[in-house]
Structures are given as C-alpha cells and as structure tokens.
C-alpha cells in the first residue's frame, strides 16, 4: 500500500535528483534508496536532505547512523517526514 505522502516523496526524489528514466512506480518503498536499489550516492543524500528541509522543514541529528536509518528506504523516509514535518 502506498500512502499519499509516499507518492509525494517519490516525486520529490525524482525531481530533486533529476532521475529522468525513473517513474514513481519504479521506486519500491521497501527497497534501499542508496547504493543498492536506486543506486543513489552520498552526494544525492546531501541533496535529498536539503530538499526535505526546504519542502517540509525537516531537521536531522548530526549523528550519521541516525541519518542512515531515516534514509534507508522510502518508507523510513516517509515516517521521518510524518514525525518531523513543520510545513
């Protein structure tokens, strides 16, 4: 089941990272976003972080394990946004 927020996030990822060949349907919510899965790298993670901040006002702890956990896949990302969004 895909929620509205997950759909929104899929589009945000595609737009932010200009993934031209990827459609929202291609992103499996449980598949790892980075390295495996979509094959995104650490720079993409930085960019995605900035986009999340801009769109939802998300704050992250400096702890990189914390970030890794939130950025694991689309579902964890959606949970992060749900919990911490301020806009």
């Amino acid at each position: 089941m895909t929620t509205e927020l997950e759909r929104e996030l899929k589009q945000l990822i595609i737009d932010t990272l200009e993934l031209e060949d990827v459609t929202p349907e291609d992103i499996d919510p449980d598949e790892p976003l980075f390295v495996e899965g979509l094959g995104l790298d650490s720079i993409d993670a930085l960019e995605l972080g900035l986009a999340l901040q801009k769109t939802y006002g998300i704050q992250l702890q400096a702890d990189s394990d914390d970030t890794r956990r939130h950025f694991a896949n689309l579902r964890t990302l959606a949970t992060l946004v749900e919990e911490r969004r301020v806009k």
Partner: peptide
C-alpha cells in the same frame, strides 16, 4: 569528520 545530510541542512539553515 564527514559531511552528512544533517550537516548540509544545518549549513543551509
């Protein structure tokens, strides 16, 4: 020690 998304966000702020 490394630039993480959290660092980038803090700097952007």
């Amino acid at each position: 020690s490394e630039i993480t998304p959290a660092t980038a966000m803090r700097l952007a702020e």
